[in-house]
């Protein structure tokens, strides 16, 4: 008979975490740290490059996933953009 209470909840997550972190590091290290000069931020200023591009959309998404999944929060903070004065 199958156990009714589910166990095994923690199984694959730690290796997955490390794998993803390592992958990300690799990707980032392939791309040397060279912050742009003020006049070089044209690409970063594009709306498609922003983190808080469409507020209503991100609110809706958060709400939808909150209703279906256990995890919530951490959808990031704003920032980015042209850094104009």
């Amino acid at each position: 008979m199958k156990p009714i209470l589910s166990v095994n909840n923690y199984l694959p997550n730690r290796p997955v975490l490390y794998g993803l972190a390592a992958g990300l590091m690799l990707l980032l290290s392939g791309c040397a740290f060279n912050p742009p000069a003020p006049w070089e931020r044209g690409d970063l200023a594009k709306s498609s490059m922003r983190f808080d591009n469409d507020k209503l959309d991100s609110l809706a998404q958060k709400h939808t996933y909150f209703s279906k999944e256990a995890a919530s929060g951490g959808s990031g903070v704003g920032g980015g953009g042209c850094g104009c004065n």
Binding site: N34, P36, L44, G80
Partner: peptide, 10 residues
């Protein structure tokens, strides 16, 4: 939030 290069933001 860091502008990593002129093409990357992290």
């Amino acid at each position: 939030t860091q502008n990593w290069t002129k093409s990357d933001v992290v």
